[in-house]
Amino acid sequence: MTVFTGSDLTCRRGERMVFARLAFTAGPGDAIMLRGRNGAGKSSLLRVMAGLLAPLHGQIFWQGEDIADDMAAHRARLQYLGHQDAVKPVLTVWDNLRLWAELRGIRDVDSEIDRALDALGILHLANTTGRFLSSGQKRRTALARILIGPAQLWLLDEPTVGLDRESSAGLAGLIEKFRGDGGTVIYSTHIDLDITGPKLLDLDEFAIPMMEWLAGAPDDVVPEEGPQAIETPDKEGVSA
């Protein structure tokens, strides 16, 4: 069963085409690992999936419905972890997380935050102010955020940055647990996370050669009628 799919995705950052005609599918319990060189568009793809960035072409569907049609519902079901930790230096770890719990309409804020902190092993830091945290502790605070509230989709952009080996293993455990509960995880990482059987999505396969792109005018690259050099990769673009 697949719930989260994208088709024909083309993305442009500034004046540079990042990837074109990208497609993916994911079902409950699936994990997709994004691969690709620097600038291949791993972060861009995650932002497109989150709805932060509108693709130039193509759509993303959740259970057959275009996410652009109901962004609020899509945001309610996803948790996104970006490059930055969004930890305020003057607030305690607990206070930092409180806003996110409140914005998600959690009823029992206290126990939800405690549970999240406990899962990441930073419950003892709950009352520590953000400015005294090490970078690894900040990253774990950010990870605790994605545990707050129900979610069906995790989009993790380099979640392991700043984490030591032990914490990375802990993160892998959390991801496995989330998948076991029927969640879908899409992530990019430079180090190996111990995750069983992730699908691989190699973004280099969707790169647009610059020469082909220039053959058309910079602004009217429409893949349908555009250069034919882009080969549609093997089915759905995801090889297990």
């Binding site: 690709g36 620097n38 600038g39 291949a40 790169a207 647009i208 082909e212």
Partner: peptide, 10 residues
């Protein structure tokens, strides 16, 4: 410029 993954293309 950061040539990115397009370096060498073409």
């Amino acid at each position: 410029y950061d040539q990115g993954h397009n370096a060498g293309a073409g």
